[in-house]
């Protein structure tokens, strides 16, 4: 496994593991398996793990441990991983979305950019099941592979200072739901009336990496039917 990653220092309190395997799915599974292994190892001083699509950030207190110890733990974990474990069982979340209009102000611009009709963008975004690759910014957002658009989507030239909760956005070859009101530079296609996070639960978010999302277009007048309902898996 060691030959499939590069480990670099990232300041005095972090290292980054970058997976370099040819296959994107392999890279993703490698960084998450590595994060699992490191969590299991309970290394003193390590307090933050951020596995994403193809990289793992390990944050630590450099008074309690050091780069060499963390690197060695990562290398040990890589040796023990051997073959990358197969995919774990995943849940499916079905998410109603009001596309366009006030809820998805960037839909026309994204359609333009991609040379598609607005309807075409909606069909691609809602016609594919998207896999959650990690929980990221802002606060536990499900970060997914983007829909099969013909080209990457550019980020906004000037980020919004406030994106409403439930906003459904895309950028590059990625897709996301913004769980809470926050600043954001991703073009907004629509918005779900569901409540994404549960502040009373230990995990905050009901989904985890590997789970799948399917977006279902709804009409603006159907918003109230779903407003404030918690996001729950369709398959239990």
């Amino acid at each position: 496994m060691r030959q499939h990653v590069a480990i670099v220092d990232c300041g005095d309190s972090a290292v980054v593991v970058k997976a370099v395997h040819d296959d994107a799915d392999h890279r993703w599974r490698a960084v998450h398996a590595l994060a699992d292994a490191l969590e299991e190892a309970r290394l003193s001083g390590v307090h933050g793990l951020v596995p994403t699509y193809d990289s793992l950030l390990v944050e630590f207190d450099c008074a309690d441990t050091d780069h060499r110890t963390v690197r060695r733990a990562l290398e040990d974990a890589l040796d023990q991983l051997g073959e990358i474990p197969a995919e774990r069982p995943s849940k499916l979340f079905v998410v109603p979305v009001v596309y366009g209009g006030e809820h998805g102000p960037d839909l026309p611009e994204v359609a333009d950019q991609l040379g598609l009709t607005e309807r075409g963008v909606i069909e691609l975004h809602s016609g594919t099941t998207l896999t959650v690759r990690c929980l990221g910014a802002p606060v536990g957002a499900p970060m997914m592979d983007g829909p099969p658009f013909p080209a990457p989507v550019a980020r906004l030239a000037s980020p919004r200072t406030s994106v409403p909760p439930g906003s459904v956005a895309v950028a590059g070859a990625q897709a996301v739901i913004c769980p809470m009101r926050s600043p954001g530079g991703w073009p907004l296609l629509g918005r779900t009336p569901l409540r994404v996070l549960d502040l009373d639960s230990e995990r905050l978010a009901p989904y985890r990496p590997g789970d799948r999302f399917r977006f279902v277009p709804i009409r603006p007048e159907q918003w109230d039917e779903h407003a404030g309902a918690p996001l729950v898996a369709a398959d239990g």
């Binding site: 990232c10 300041g11 309190s13 972090a14 980054v16 951020v50 596995p51 994403t52 699509y53 193809d54 990289s55 793992l56 950030l57 944050e59 990690c134 990221g136 910014a137 970060m143 990457p152 030239a157 590059g172 070859a173 990625q174």
Partner: peptide
């Protein structure tokens, strides 16, 4: 080129466009 979202540490000095 396109950058995939990845973990960034506290203290990162980022350079937007």
């Amino acid at each position: 080129g396109e950058v995939l979202s990845r973990g960034v540490p506290v203290g990162a000095v980022e350079v937007p466009a």
